[in-house]
Design a protein around this nucleic acid. Structure first.
Lengths: 187, 187
DNA sequence: CCCAGAGGCTAATGTCATTAGCCAAGGGCG
DNA sequence: CGCCCTTGGCTAATGACATTAGCCTCTGGG
């Protein structure tokens, strides 16, 4: 069969991810990827349909990666501990890979390539809220609130949007407590 | 003196804003702006230093515009009413101009051109929280929490990231109540 | 041994940003 | 009144990219 004698689509995405980490999503260019792979630019089209598709694939990869990291952190915990762990893990991912965070698709369910990864992250959040006895739409709203909090903070932090010297850990702790309080009053 | 017989930097930004509204920040191109102005592309350099500067100017413009809208809404109110009004006005701006929202700089204080507008928005938020008796860093954290909430929601909503049919107004109301509760417990 | 397809390559096209250098018009000033 | 300079527009040229077409060369299976 096909021997992976060289490049594969996954390998191309690996390289692209490195470029995103270094230069941000807008710095992701087929020319740069090709150069990093040691091939001519048009050769990439043997593995990837277009720059747009590559960006979509990178977005999916980041989503999967982050979801795995978060899921692992939350594993084996429940209740407030799990929620706290999830929120901290989410923030940690954004803070550790700021450029990459900007490549995250906010609407993964609109693209078949990213759909699975998006559903999985939402699933992890949803599962983390299990135990608070949320029914139907209450669970949906609670999940949305959680998403808003973690994404809002990670988005601003990863773009260097917090200017003042006050400790960001304190702000984040307050956000966690704020969220946990709504869960308590709901369940 | 100089008669504004034709294009001015501000007029170029106006046109650019229209293009951003229609095609998003990545669709903003000097060629498109020039065409819309009825002028050759290089002529724009007589009014704007580069595409990058134009994007910065557009970001500042959006920030100013949104801040004005919000400040007007909040004017004459205080306390929970003011906070609620601010949060709703913020969301309304993002929902009304989704493409434009993506052009908002998250780190306006890092750029001299956008600094004033950024400081003004933070100032409006800060002032809105006056009356809750927040001192020093407590006010900073409260402002950050507010920013996280409104930006997180507007960011996701403007990119079509909320997929389920549950009412977004309900989710947003919960976020508002959640935030007001933290203010109450702090003051 | 032969062949097909996988995976690379070069050449060519079109879109953009950006720079250089040219040119007309209009207002201020001698 | 007429000259000069600044303003603002233009064309030409360059260089980065994405994308397409068409060619060439292994390599592994029959």
């Amino acid at each position: 069969m096909v021997v992976k004698r060289s490049l594969t689509p996954a390998a191309v995405v690996d390289v692209a991810l490195g470029i995103v980490d270094e230069h941000g999503p807008d710095g992701l260019t087929l020319a740069a990827v090709a150069h990093a792979c040691g091939v001519a630019t048009p050769s990439l089209y043997k593995h990837v349909a277009s720059l747009g598709e590559l960006k979509t694939l990178v977005g999916a990869r980041v989503l999967e990666d982050m979801t795995d990291r978060i899921a692992t952190t939350v594993l084996g915990t429940s209740g407030d501990e799990a929620v706290t762990g999830l929120m901290r893990a989410y923030r940690a991912y954004g803070a550790t890979h700021p450029k990459r965070y900007a490549a995250l698709p906010m609407d993964p369910l609109h693209d078949p390539i990213q759909e699975a990864a998006g559903a999985k992250l939402v699933g992890v959040m949803y599962a983390t809220l299990r135990g608070y006895g949320l029914e139907g739409s209450a669970a949906v709203h609670a999940t949305r609130r959680l998403r808003v909090l973690v994404h809002g903070f990670a988005s601003i932090e990863s773009e260097g949007g917090f200017g003042l010297p006050e400790d960001l850990d304190d702000t984040y702790d307050q956000l966690i407590q704020m969220y946990l309080a709504t869960l308590r009053s709901e369940s």
